[in-house]
Design a binder for these strands. Structure first.
Lengths: 239, 239
DNA sequence: TCAAAAGTGTTGTCGATACACCCATGG
DNA sequence: CCATGGGTGTATCGACAACACTTTTGA
C-alpha cells in the first residue's frame, strides 16, 4: 500500500527472463516526394520483416533499446542502422504498450522525425521501401495505428509550430515552403496571406539569392535557428 | 542492417535477468487546494520512499508494469494502490529513459492526471502527502524534472482545451471555473470576457440551480460530455 | 507581348480585450 | 440602502481571409 515508483516490487517482478517485458524503439519518418502528377506527397520508409512475428509484412524502422543508451540515442541508432537516415527533426511521439500488440510483451517507445530530401542516402538499403503515407498496406503489429497518430501530430504541429523547414533544404522559396504546408494540411493556402504570416513570424531570414525558373525569380530564405526553442517545453532532444 | 522493429536482436538482448531494462509507470496527479490566504493552488500527492534507492525522499506514485496489463491499466492500478485515487482525467505524458536516472536501468512511462477534490479519499494513506506544485522539495530520481514538464503541459493544455472541469465537482459556478483557470495560468482573467468565452465554446450546460452565498446567487453549470472527444487525436485513454 | 508566378494593398470579419454599466442579494 | 459579486453592453484592436492589383521574368 506504500509501494513507491521505481521501488522493487517482488510480487510483480518477472521471475524468469522469458517473462520479462522488453523495450523497443521505433520511428515514423516523414519526408516529401513528388508524385506522378508533380504534387508533393508525404512518404515514409518501412522495413520488410525478415522473421516472425509478421514475417514478410512491412514495419516501422526500429530495434531494441540497448541497456547503455538513452531512448533518444536508441531512436537515432536504430534509425541509422535500418535506414541510414539521420533526421533533422526528432521528437518522442508516444509509448505503446497494449498487452496483445505483439506475441511477446513489448513496450515500444515511438519517435517521429522529419527529413529533408537531401538527407536521404542515395544507396538503396535492402528491405527498405518508401510508401505514400495516405495509402499504406497492412503493417506489422499496431504500426498502422501508430502512423495514423504520427500523421495527426504532424498536421497538428505544423499549425502552431514552424517545423515545416525540417522538410526543406537550407534555402527555399516561399512557394516551396507553402507547398510543404499545403501537402501536409491537404488544402490550398493563399500565397499573399501565407507570405505575410511567415514574414511576421520572424522565423525566416531573407537571403540575397533568387531561385530562377521559368518566370519571375523568387527570393530564397533561410530558417532562423534562434527562434522557437522556447515553445517545446522543458524537454528537448539533444543531438 | 535489416533489423526491424520488434524483431529479436540477439546482440542487444539481455543475457541475464539482472541486466534487463525494467518498465515502471508513474503519475503526476494535480488537484487544487485552498492555501492559508484562501487562494486556490495546484497541489500533487507524493509518496515517501521506504527503501533504496533514495530512501526517505519523496517520489511520484507509481510502480512496475505488470506483464499482463496495458500501460494505461498500470497507471490506474499503481495510482489506486499507492494513493487510493481514481482520477477523472488521465493521459500519457512522456517516456523517460535516461541511462543514469536510476541505479538500475528503468524506463518510466509517466502519466498525468486531474482529480476533483471530492474524488480524494478522506482516509489518510500512510507515507502519502500533498505538496504545493510550486514549492517542491528535492524529489527522488528525475521526478523534479518530470513534475516541471507535467506543469508545463497542464498550463499549455488549459489554454486550448477544456480540461479544467476535471478539477471541479459536477456542478460549479463560472466564478469557480474561472478561479481554476486563474490558479493554473497564474494570472487574473476578466470575469465578463471569461463568461462569454466559455459560453460560446459550447462546453457548458446551464442548470436551473444556483449557488447562494453572501451576495447575488450564481448559476450552476455542468460540463457537456459530448464535446472535445475529437481534438485529442486517434488515441484516447479508455476507462 | 503574353502567361504565370512574385509580391503589395485594401477591405471585411471575427475573436479577444478593456471597461462602463446594470442586477440581485445579504447584511 | 449599500457593498459585493453576478451578469450585460459596447468600443477598440489585431489577426486573418479574400481578392484586386502591380511587378518581373522566360518564352
Amino acid at each position: 500500500m506504500t509501494q513507491t515508483s521505481l521501488s522493487p516490487a517482488p510480487s510483480s517482478a518477472p521471475t524468469a527472463p522469458e517473462e520479462a517485458t522488453r523495450v523497443a524503439v521505433s520511428t515514423v519518418i516523414f519526408t516529401l516526394r513528388r508524385d506522378p502528377l508533380d504534387d508533393q506527397t508525404v512518404v515514409l520508409p518501412l522495413v520488410r520483416r525478415t522473421r516472425d512475428p509478421h514475417e514478410g509484412l512491412w514495419a516501422l524502422p526500429g530495434g531494441w533499446l540497448n541497456p547503455t543508451e538513452s531512448l533518444d540515442a536508441a531512436a537515432s541508432r536504430t534509425l541509422a542502422e535500418t535506414t541510414g537516415i539521420a533526421p533533422s527533426y526528432l521528437e518522442q511521439l508516444y509509448a505503446f504498450g497494449a498487452v496483445d500488440r505483439s506475441p511477446a510483451r513489448v513496450v515500444s517507445i515511438v519517435y517521429w522525425a522529419l527529413v529533408r530530401p537531401d538527407e536521404i542516402p542515395n544507396d538503396v538499403v535492402e528491405n527498405v521501401s518508401w510508401f505514400d503515407a495516405a495509402e499504406l498496406p497492412r503493417l506489422a503489429f499496431d504500426h498502422n495505428e501508430i502512423v495514423e497518430y504520427a500523421l495527426w501530430r504532424l498536421r497538428n504541429k505544423v499549425g502552431y509550430s514552424r517545423i515545416a523547414h525540417g522538410l526543406l533544404a537550407d534555402a527555399f522559396t516561399l512557394a516551396e515552403l507553402r507547398e510543404v504546408y499545403e501537402s501536409i494540411l491537404g488544402r490550398r493556402l493563399d500565397p499573399a496571406n501565407f507570405r505575410r504570416q511567415v514574414e511576421n513570424s520572424g522565423t525566416l531570414i531573407p537571403t540575397d539569392r533568387f531561385r530562377t525558373g521559368s518566370h519571375r525569380p523568387a527570393r530564397l530564405y533561410r530558417y532562423n535557428q534562434d527562434v522557437e526553442l522556447a515553445d517545446r517545453g522543458p524537454l528537448v532532444v539533444r543531438h
